[in-house]
């Protein structure tokens, strides 16, 4: 049988999926082992145990200076910023995206502007945000919004334009007002696509969050890894990176689950990743 026609069983699929992860960990452990054979105080590739200990210290042992559990505090702060920023971007995407996609006059007025705005490299706006909003929470959240909203708006507008014209005309012949078409046709048709767009936008959102925290913050996951970088504390940085990755993965899966639960009709025709 040709290789393209053979599918793995569930168990094989799981094992195959684990192979690259295990291989990475093993390769790291081996490299770390040999480096520490030469220099037991090596800081570059700390052992898995020392990383585990550092992670435990961050998660479960109160900080000597502040008496706080740093990992959870950092996680809470970062997720709050990320969530607020993404929520604002999503609301903007719905409001402006539907306006642009559904109402030709709004499209003429705003589409070129949003297209131009989305080309500004968001990180170049960060100094402006710091100057205007100060170094507090607002400027970090604003960076996430500036970085993700324009693309989400354009994606949503396109999703509205992709609704078959037949459906919109059918709604008109069923006596729907524009507002009713928005609430009963456009929003339900667009929401699952907007969730897919949120999943993709989480990647840049994390980048902007970590950047903003690295530059000006007193808490947060990005702040922490850039703080301990000064001491070459790879035993903290690496587990933090893994932790951020896990959080990002869980958010992505949660959004997928939400989409499958709330918009079952959208996932009937077989699903991608």
């Amino acid at each position: 049988m040709r290789v393209i026609n053979r599918s793995p069983s569930r168990l094989t699929a799981l094992a195959l999926g684990l192979v690259p992860f295990v291989a990475t960990i093993v390769a790291y452990a081996v490299a770390s082992h040999y480096r520490r054979l030469e220099n037991p105080a090596d800081k570059l590739l700390p052992s898995l145990e020392s990383m585990g200990q550092a992670f435990w210290r961050m998660a479960a042992v109160p900080d000597k200076r502040s008496g706080e559990l740093l990992l959870w505090l950092d996680t809470f702060d970062s997720l709050w910023r990320l969530g607020t920023g993404m929520a604002l971007a999503t609301v903007l995407a719905l409001l402006i995206g539907i306006g642009i996609g559904f109402v030709p006059h709004v499209r003429s007025a705003l589409a070129p502007y949003i297209a131009t705005f989305s080309l500004i490299p968001p990180i170049t706006v960060l100094p402006i945000l710091f100057i205007v909003f100060g170094l507090g929470e607002v400027s970090k959240i604003a960076l996430i919004v500036v970085g993700t909203a324009p693309v989400m708006i354009r994606y949503t507008a396109q999703a509205v334009l992709d609704i078959p014209r037949e459906m919109i005309i059918k709604a008109e012949t069923l006596g729907a007002s524009v507002w009713q078409m928005v609430t009963r046709l456009v929003v339900p048709q667009v929401l699952p696509k907007l969730i897919a767009c949120m999943r993709l936008s989480l990647v840049p959102a994390w980048i902007f969050l970590i950047s903003a925290e690295a530059i000006a913050s007193t808490r947060g996951l990005g702040y922490r890894i850039f703080l301990v970088r000064r001491y070459l504390a790879m035993d903290v940085i690496l587990p933090y990176v893994a932790w951020i990755t896990l959080l990002a993965f869980l958010l992505d899966r949660l959004l997928l689950l939400l989409s499958r639960r709330a918009f079952r009709w959208h996932h009937l025709g077989g699903d991608a990743l």
Binding site: P164, E166, M167, A171, L174, T183, R184, P188, W265, H266
Partner: peptide, 28 residues
């Protein structure tokens, strides 16, 4: 094709016109 609303069930498709007529604000 595309005559019916893909996000609504058969029954929901059929009551939609009445919903538009009766519920001006929510359409539901």
């Amino acid at each position: 094709k595309y005559s019916v609303f893909s996000h609504l069930t058969v029954a929901e498709n059929l009551i939609l016109a009445k919903e538009f007529e009766a519920a001006t604000l929510t359409g539901r």
